[in-house]
């Protein structure tokens, strides 16, 4: 089938998926879930804030035992779970193999439906802090 062939099928999904008041359940729900209680240096602390403000809306923890629907999803974490199938943690905050270069490539280029971030949204200094946070548990 030609690739254009996906169009209206996808459309039907869009029409429906956006709808419906119901969905999901998670007793630990917060808008920007914090993760871990590590004592942090200022740059790691700043990186954590950046992560919570810009990333955790998609890369936060998945809602457990959720009934299907948009409210039950965590798009970035779900995507990485589907990609790595358990070979790596789906939560970016649990990874120990990320490098600053790798993080920068994704943040400044985007991937799939995730757009790139401009410097007015995420300055170079905050980019560095974000990298410090996401690489904090890497083994030397």
């Amino acid at each position: 089938m030609r690739r254009a062939g996906k169009v209206l099928l996808a459309a039907l999904g869009f029409v429906l998926l956006g709808t419906g008041p119901a969905t999901g359940q998670d007793s630990s729900w917060t808008l920007f879930p914090s993760h871990g209680q590590e004592s942090a240096t200022p740059i790691i602390q700043r990186g954590k804030e950046v992560f919570q403000n810009l990333c955790s809306g998609c890369h936060g923890p998945v809602i457990k035992n959720a009934s299907p629907g948009i409210g039950a999803t965590m798009p970035g974490t779900d995507a990485l779970a589907a990609k790595y199938k358990g070979a790596k943690p789906a939560m970016l905050e649990e990874r120990t193999d990320l490098t600053p270069q790798f993080i920068k490539i994704f943040v400044r280029n985007g991937v799939s439906v995730m757009p790139r971030f401009r410097k007015t949204e995420l300055s170079d200094a905050d980019m560095e802090a974000l990298s410090a946070y996401l690489t904090r548990n890497n083994k030397p």
Partner: peptide
């Protein structure tokens, strides 16, 4: 955790799931 939060005036990014992997 049981609702689609924008229906309650709460911003979210979860709608990205419609096209994400």
């Amino acid at each position: 955790g049981n609702v689609n939060v924008p229906l309650f005036g709460i911003p979210s990014l979860r709608m990205f799931s419609i096209g994400a992997r």
